[in-house]
Simulated scan of single mutants.
Amino acid sequence: MSTFQALISSWASELSIYEKQEAESVVSWLLEHHLGWRRTQILDEADVSSFPQQLFGDFERLKTGEPIQYIMGKGPFYGRDFFVSAATLIPRNETEELVHLIIKENPEAGLRILDIGTGTGCIPISLALEMNNPEVFAVDISEEALEVAKKNAEALNAKVTFSTCNILTQTPEVTPLDILVSNPPYIPEQEKAEMHKNVLDFEPGLALFVSNDDPLIFYKEIAKKGKQLLKLGGKLYFEINEKYGIQVAELMNELGYTEVKVLRDLNGKERIAAGRR
């Protein structure tokens, strides 16, 4: 028998790839998932012998660096839980900020919205549920990702029309749009050396990486196609690599977008670019 906090600290010490506080949060999340325990509860005793075997198996997976969201099959985003799989990126805080900005800036009813490279569907589903009766579409090149996105939309009772599309070679048939949003692949291959092992080894490279020769390839194609897809006055929103804010803004300006802006996230990094057709 041991105290609950001592158990968390002990298990967290075995997760060397995380900072101490993050490791303790991950362990708490795992215990809550399997046992229903929350750190806020007062639990003096932890009888390890009563734990289900799967909990120990999942803890071994954590030690390899596998993200807790993949182990549990879900991750939180904008106040809801979303299913995730090895075919999808894990929803992140920066993307929540993008969604929040779109909701805040677009209170009108009945807007037509397209998300490109949807992954789990966290962006279009959140917009469908939070905005004023929008008509929402989403595309992805990955059939496996789209299956996860459809599962999320069904579980959360969100009306989103999903379809397969390679945005580099195809143009979605969804005109005219009020809002076009995308969090496309934006990490050059050369930056792999700077990334955490748990991202490199487990998250889908298809959704992460672009060539060193043309790191803005998705922004160029999406912005060009946005000129066809968006209504006059419609808005384009991107999540961006913090290193390319100026370049993405220049690209949008060159293509004729107006009111182009680059915004910093809560950590002070340039992570959102937006403009108007």
Score class of each variant (00 low, 15 high):
154 E>Y: 11
186 Y>G: 00
82 F>G: 01
242 E>N: 04
64 T>P: 13
221 E>P: 00
68 I>E: 08
213 D>M: 09
187 I>L: 09
240 I>N: 01
143 E>H: 12
245 G>N: 07
29 W>L: 13
158 A>W: 11
183 N>L: 03
166 N>V: 07
190 Q>T: 11
92 R>H: 01
58 D>L: 05
204 P>Q: 01
185 P>Y: 07
231 K>C: 11
106 N>L: 06
90 I>V: 09
88 T>S: 03
230 L>G: 07
156 L>N: 03
161 T>I: 07
268 G>R: 06
114 L>F: 11
95 T>P: 01
13 S>K: 15
71 I>K: 05
175 T>R: 13
140 D>C: 02
103 I>K: 14
157 N>M: 13
153 A>S: 05
104 K>L: 15
154 E>I: 12
215 P>C: 07
199 V>A: 00
268 G>F: 02
142 S>K: 02
178 D>E: 08
144 E>I: 12
140 D>P: 05
76 P>K: 05
99 V>R: 04
77 F>S: 05
220 K>R: 13
185 P>R: 10
110 G>C: 08
216 L>E: 00
131 M>V: 07
158 A>F: 09
109 A>W: 03
29 W>A: 10
201 D>N: 13
207 A>F: 04
257 Y>F: 02
277 R>S: 13
25 S>D: 14
156 L>T: 05
250 E>A: 02
245 G>C: 09
217 I>Q: 03
175 T>P: 02
155 A>I: 08
173 E>P: 14
265 D>M: 03
269 K>D: 00
272 I>P: 06
35 L>V: 04
230 L>F: 11
186 Y>P: 00
72 M>E: 07
265 D>Q: 01
40 T>H: 14
128 A>R: 01
184 P>N: 03
162 F>H: 03
138 A>K: 02
132 N>K: 11
216 L>D: 00
197 K>F: 15
140 D>W: 06
31 L>Y: 12
120 T>N: 06
65 G>I: 11
231 K>G: 10
230 L>R: 08
228 Q>W: 10
107 P>E: 09
174 V>I: 12
21 Q>W: 12
51 F>C: 10
111 L>P: 03
58 D>T: 04
18 Y>D: 14
11 W>R: 12
230 L>S: 10
